[in-house]
Amino acid sequence: MQGPTMALVPYNKNNDVLSIFNQPEREFNFAGQKLKISQDWNKLGVAAVVWDAAIVLCEYLEAGNVDLDKKKVIELGAGSGIVGIVSTLLGAHTTITDLEKAIPYLTEVVNTNLPKRVEGQFTVQALDWRENLESHTKTYDVILGADIIYIEETFPDLLRTIEHLSDENTLVYISCRIRYTRDSNFLQMLSEVFDLKKVHVDRSRDIIIYKGKKKTKDL
């Protein structure tokens, strides 16, 4: 997750609805493997818990909706890294990114959950959307993001980052819950540069997955 630490939901230790964020570890089964994702809200806030948008995107990927085999994939604002982990297990060569302060936690979770057979198939890197994009000059086949459009001040930088990392063949998948008008505003910004469409709606968890591909420039 990028930008200032900011709750996506009101946080209250006594709120049963939010008790899942207090769990020190959550377990999932994806790509034939049991994943154990540690959580630490008190230390890193939103960056250290597993959000529904990430789970829904993992389910979407596991269902075979995106060709990941041997593809160059980057996850933006990875948080717990579960999306990048699942992408790697499904055959992608994955770069899993977040802010520098989240890298120790992210690295530990990723290394704990990825087996030796995929060693060399993934990397964890710091990526701040506001700066040093030049250090990430590779164009990716697939760009993934789960719940990364919740802080309005980051929107221009996020859009610039997605543009920088993509070409006209890159597929962008954004999994999100539309909480506020500003979230829709980012999607409008993205649609000005990318052909954007809904490809999946999980009504039970109120999550939408959007797919984008950079618009072809007129000659």
Score class of each variant (00 low, 15 high):
L68P: 01
I162S: 08
W41Y: 08
K34F: 11
A92Y: 01
K213M: 14
I20C: 12
L68N: 05
Q23R: 12
L127I: 13
I207W: 00
S38H: 03
V17D: 15
H164F: 10
S166G: 07
L159P: 07
Q188C: 12
Q33G: 06
L114D: 13
S184L: 10
T94G: 01
W51I: 05
E108T: 14
L57C: 03
V9S: 12
S87D: 04
V73E: 02
L90M: 10
D157E: 13
K72Y: 06
I178F: 03
V50C: 05
G145W: 05
V73S: 11
A54S: 08
G64V: 01
A92H: 03
G84Q: 09
E131P: 12
V109W: 06
L196V: 06
L190Y: 04
E168G: 12
Y60K: 00
R130G: 09
P4I: 09
L219R: 12
I151K: 08
E192W: 11
N22M: 11
L99P: 13
S175A: 04
Y11D: 10
I20P: 11
L99E: 11
D40G: 07
I55E: 00
Y150L: 07
I208T: 11
L61D: 09
T112K: 12
R177M: 12
P24N: 01
G84A: 06
H164T: 11
V73N: 03
H200P: 06
N15S: 08
T170G: 05
E192I: 10
D157I: 07
L61H: 05
W41G: 06
G79V: 04
V86Q: 02
V193S: 13
I85H: 05
L61F: 05
I74F: 03
L190N: 04
L99S: 06
V142K: 02
R160Y: 11
R177H: 15
P115F: 09
P104I: 10
V124S: 09
I174M: 09
I143Q: 08
E62T: 01
L76E: 05
E100W: 11
V124Y: 03
K13E: 15
A54W: 00
G77C: 00
D206W: 01
N65R: 00
I208C: 09
F30Q: 00
H93Y: 14
I149M: 11
S19V: 12
E153D: 15
G64R: 02
Q188E: 12
K138S: 14
A31Y: 00
K197P: 04
D147N: 03
A78T: 08
L144W: 02
D206A: 09
L171P: 09
D183F: 07
P24M: 01
N111H: 10
K197N: 15
V109Q: 09
